[in-house]
Amino acid sequence: MIKATDLPDIVPIFPLPGALLLPRARLPLHIFEPRYLAMLDDALKSPSRLIAMIQPAVHGQGEPNALHQIGCAGRLTQFSETEDGRYMITLTGMSRFRVIEELSGFQPYRRCRVSWDAFERDLGPSEKDTQFDRSGFLRLLQRYFDSRQLSTDWDNLENADDELLINSLSMMMDFQPEDKQALLEAPSLSTRRETLVTLMEFALRGGDQEDLLQ
């Protein structure tokens, strides 16, 4: 099993609003900007093959290029090149981290010194949600999807394990970036599920999600 001490202290940062990566989950990305192509090339040459996803801070709060303090690093597990030199990649979530400082340098992309402390659970086995009312959760999810005229494979959802179900929905659903950050920072799977339920219920009541978790 990988330990936090096995992870690098400095990671390349990919700030992408609304993009959420969680431990043990997979995030597909389309890479085409030159600076991120350079980041991908360097990540492929590194032993860890890590790229760290992080949300930019809300506009108007602090510095214009400020980042949230907590993100999640993923290992590059799949990539393919298109004919015009772009890449389709997949990151598999490894662990969340806390930013210590952003580093300057000659690279065209951003890098940060990070701490993996307090996120040891991310490197362990899949989490369980012992209080999970799956049938009630799926009824709420059905209402939410119906309200947005969305469809899904309900058989797969019903059979998915707790972590895969909750984390996949947290990543794919169209919440505000600050709400996505709240899902990322949830200390446990049950807390993330409770946050996800709150977001769906609030949306069904016609609330303004932008103000929900700020």
Rank of each mutant, 00 (worst) to 15 (best):
K3S: 15
V11L: 15
I13Y: 03
I13F: 03
F14N: 02
F14D: 00
F14R: 07
P15D: 00
P15Y: 10
G18C: 01
L21C: 01
L22V: 08
H30D: 02
I31F: 02
E33G: 01
R35M: 01
Y36T: 00
A38R: 13
K45S: 03
R49D: 01
L50Y: 02
M53A: 00
I54L: 07
I54D: 00
P56N: 01
P56Q: 01
G60H: 04
G60D: 06
E63F: 03
A66W: 00
L67T: 04
H68Q: 13
Q69N: 10
G71F: 02
C72W: 07
A73D: 06
L76Y: 10
L76W: 04
Q78D: 06
Q78L: 06
E81D: 11
E81I: 12
D84S: 14
R86K: 15
R86W: 05
Y87C: 09
S95F: 07
I100L: 12
G105T: 14
F106N: 14
Q107G: 00
Q107M: 12
R110G: 07
R113S: 11
D117V: 15
L123M: 11
G124Y: 05
P125L: 11
S126Q: 13
E127A: 13
T130F: 10
Q131Y: 03
R134F: 09
G136Y: 07
L138C: 10
L140S: 06
L140D: 09
L141R: 06
Q142S: 14
D146T: 14
W154I: 09
L157N: 13
L157E: 09
E158I: 08
N159C: 13
D161A: 10
N167F: 13
N167D: 10
S170K: 08
M172C: 08
M172T: 15
Q176H: 08
D179F: 00
Q181R: 06
E185V: 10
T191W: 02
R192H: 05
R192M: 06
R192D: 00
E194Q: 13
E194F: 02
T195G: 04
V197S: 07
T198D: 11
T198S: 14
L199G: 09
L199R: 07
E201T: 06
F202P: 00
A203M: 04
A203G: 02
A203E: 09
R205C: 05
G206C: 06
Q209M: 15
D211V: 08
D211I: 05
L212Y: 09
L213D: 12
Q214G: 11
